[in-house]
Design a binder for these strands. Structure first.
Lengths: 250, 250
DNA sequence: GTCTATTGACTTGTCAGACAACTGATTTAT
DNA sequence: ATAAATCAGTTGTCTGACAAGTCAATAGAC
């Protein structure tokens, strides 16, 4: 049973098309700019107003748009939420690319082997399973200075050493996205602070015992399987993570 | 200029009512349970289908519901996202309460003074402003063991020492929520790993230099002002934070 | 009897057009 | 000069209908 025998919609639904078109439009606008009125926008995008409104509602929920009854719809983003926030999963490579930051893979190791018990648990396979996996381990550096150590554990059924291709630059996420398979839905990332052990201290050029930010992520496909279990260490100061949180009423 | 002269809608709009009703309904269901079909649900809640759909769309966006074209709408929540994730801002007291965990305020200090330059910046007041603030500093312990050091910095115009009331148990957020003023919208929380200095090491009962998770939060009101700037330190192992991240297509 | 194709009930997705409610600026009346 | 009324523009909500997807029951072919 592979991940590829699931069927997904071939043509994009109106809603998805509208979402992409809206994002493109927003990208060309500045914070605070007003969008065209709904009837005009719906006509322009070739959909009905209710459909457009459903899409806009999701963008409001994501904090991209702000609506004011009787006034209009505006581009929100007081801060670049989507740029540096943690609500969106994005490879470091792409993040850096967008802010014109040069990154180098200071260290890259690819290996195929059986998953360790901890990795099996992280991949949410039954305890005791023998799971052949691809391990991608790399250290990211900025201007020669190592800032992050990233490790991906991917079951071989989703990705093999050959599947990485020639111009693999380190990001398993990007490979999945470019390939379009498996279709990804969400990621659950656990956030921990951990003291650097000897191995990571050496790799990242910090003192043993210094505080590192550790992110443990599980990347889920549409059919609710873990397709990537990742463990990352970040050197404080070089990367800042933030998260936007809604207030829980009542 | 206080925060109270802004006007907010007096009666809840249909959409807000429906959202609350839906949450109540979902709460009484289990993961995977199917909701009534949209036409029936709309009738039951006394709104039109488009309105109901807009609300459902936001719940889908939040990961609470899952919709399958031609099949139905189901309660999602593979894990208790809203319970322990970071998408929702919630006081530690309430979080602990819900999981039947006894917490004690091992240390509580309340003080009124002028904000330091760093605090002024955190509150997003103009540089150089003299901002009188209320400082609430406390250490949370579980079963006698300190696990978190929390500090809130609140401009006096929003909260004073007297405003805390008699039965103040340590959470500024809960005071705001109970009082209903100022109306809160979102919080921006920055995530850092930091080594414990002497002061925090002593307070939290850990070795100097051990890794702590540091969260720096800015709590925003509806009129886009910072009403609470907070700095928190957490001892690893006692609290786990995670965040659900969407995949960034393209 | 077994397998395959078809039908049909049920559900979500989308559409169209209309009116209500709100906002902000303009105009009018005092 | 000031306050009230008006009005154009926008989002919010409603009604009713049809399209498209899913799944199980049914009818048909072998």
């Amino acid at each position: 049973m592979t991940a590829s025998n699931a069927t997904y919609p071939k043509v994009r639904s109106p809603r998805v098309q509208v979402e992409e078109a809206l994002y493109a439009m927003i990208e060309s606008l500045k914070t605070g700019d007003q969008l065209p009125p709904e009837p005009a926008l719906a006509k322009q995008l070739g959909v009905s107003r209710p459909t457009l409104r459903e899409v806009m509602r999701t963008l409001v929920e994501r904090g991209v748009l702000v609506r004011r009854h009787g006034v209009g719809t505006f581009v929100a983003s007081r801060f670049p939420v989507l740029e540096s926030g943690m609500e969106i999963l994005e490879s470091l490579a792409r993040l850096a690319e967008r802010i014109d930051l040069q990154t180098e893979a200071a260290y890259l190791e690819v290996e195929e082997r059986l998953a360790t018990p901890i990795e099996v648990a992280g991949l949410e396979f039954p305890q005791g399973s023998e799971v052949p996996v691809l391990i991608v381990n790399r250290v990211i550096a900025i201007e020669g200075e190592p800032v992050a150590d990233l490790r991906d554990i991917v079951p071989l059924e989703y990705l093999t050493k050959e599947g990485l291709g020639e111009n693999f630059h380190g990001s398993v996420l990007d490979v999945f996205l470019e390939r379009g398979e498996p279709l990804l839905s969400t990621s659950r990332t656990e956030i921990v602070a951990e003291a650097a052990n000897v191995k990571f201290a050496k790799r990242l050029g910090v003192r043993k015992g210094s505080a590192l930010l550790k992110l443990v992520g599980q990347l889920y496909s549409y059919d609710e399987k873990v397709v990537d279990y990742s463990v990352s260490y970040f050197v404080p100061g070089h990367f800042k993570f933030h998260v936007m949180r809604r207030v829980n009423r009542k």
